Amino acid sequence: MSKAVTPGSGRASGGGGAGERAAGALDRGLAILTHVARHRGISTADIAQALGLTRSTAYRLVDRLQEQGWLAQAPATARWQLGPAAVRLASAAVASTTLRDAAAPALRKLGEVTQETVSLGVPNGLTMVFVHRERGTRPATVTAELGAARPLHSTSLGRAYLAALPQQKLEDTLIELVRDPLSPVTAATVSDLHAEIERTRERGWSQDLRDFDESSCCCGAAVHDHTGMPVACISVAGVAERMGPLIPAYGPLVAQVCRELSYDLGYLPPAS
């Protein structure tokens, strides 16, 4: 039986069979591709150091990946980035995956664990629109039909989306909210929303404690696609008296579900 390979070890942990050596090379090659995806514009020497490979092994594998089109050198820096073969594979994966189909099992699982109403929303202008829902076994206050819109500023779906935006896009969106005549966010109150977004980023999940609806509380998190942008958010909502004390426990759960779904959609978080 083949022994496991640790990508950073630079070699297989078992003996020297041809199949085992091939598996070891494959694991190291995949580790290189994953590392380049996370650290765009990296040298072969940096790859070797980060993954614990010898320089000769790193150069050999990188050359092979370049030959097959999995890696390419950036024109300006001659450092490595993903090549056309990786791009084609990613495009095929994206084309074969629809957000709602990919999210449905995760939503069902989250609903089973919390027994509360779990919703999937997507951004539409300055609102989030419900596109899928799993109703829990407990009494719920969420009555809006699919297709209904909710504001960005006062809901867990909206706050999760805002918190996941790149900083410049967030600032532009906040300006739009202030300028929108239908939005209650004003120049005097936008700083409060900004502070709530920062708290959301620090927690890793958003919350709405009777802010949108006096009878309900909810928490949420964002789903990212392969480009790194938030494309949807998931929330767990329930009757305020019951749900309020559970928010600190359910927030991390919905955040974990969103991380797993983002990974399935091709998202790799930036290196810390």
Rank of each mutant, 00 (worst) to 15 (best):
P75S: 05
W70E: 04
Q66F: 03
V87P: 01
A93H: 13
G69H: 09
A76N: 03
R79G: 00
A78P: 02
Q81D: 08
P84W: 04
L65D: 13
L89Y: 07
L82E: 04
R79M: 05
A95N: 03
P84A: 10
A92V: 07
Q68Y: 12
A92L: 12
P75T: 10
V87G: 00
G83K: 02
R64Q: 14
Q68P: 00
T97D: 03
W80E: 01
W70Q: 03
L71I: 06
L65M: 14
A85P: 09
R64F: 09
V87W: 08
G83W: 05
A85F: 11
A95T: 08
E67A: 11
G69A: 10
A95R: 11
W80M: 06
R79L: 11
Q68V: 05
T77F: 05
A76I: 00
A78E: 11
L71N: 07
Q73R: 15
Q81G: 14
A74K: 10
L71W: 11
L65I: 12
A93M: 11
Q81P: 01
A90Y: 03
E67Y: 05
A86E: 09
G83T: 02
L65A: 14
L65Y: 06
V94T: 14
G69F: 04
W70P: 05
A72F: 08
A92W: 05
A92G: 04
A85R: 13
A78C: 07
A93R: 15
P84K: 06
R79N: 02
G83D: 06
L82S: 07
A76W: 01
W80L: 09
L65E: 12
S96A: 15
P75G: 08
G83V: 06
A90D: 12
L71H: 05
A90R: 14
Q81N: 08
R79Y: 04
S91G: 08
A76R: 04
A74Q: 14
A92S: 09
A92F: 03
L65H: 12
T77R: 13
A85T: 12
A93W: 10
A85N: 09
R88H: 10
V87Y: 03
G83A: 07
A74L: 11
A93Q: 15
E67D: 13
A76M: 03
A95Q: 08
A76P: 01
V87H: 14
Q73G: 14
L65N: 13
A90E: 13
T97N: 03
R88Y: 10
A85S: 14
L71F: 06
P84H: 03
G83I: 01
A92P: 03
S96F: 00
G83M: 06
A95V: 03
A92R: 14
A92M: 09
Q68L: 10
L89A: 13
Q81T: 12
R64N: 09
A72W: 12
A86K: 03
W80C: 00
Q81V: 13
T77K: 04
A86S: 13
Q66R: 15
A74C: 02
A86P: 08
R64W: 13
A78S: 14
Q73N: 10
S91P: 01
Q66C: 08
S96G: 10
G83C: 05
G69S: 07
R79Q: 05
P75M: 08
A76K: 02
Q68I: 01
T97W: 06
L89D: 09
W80V: 02
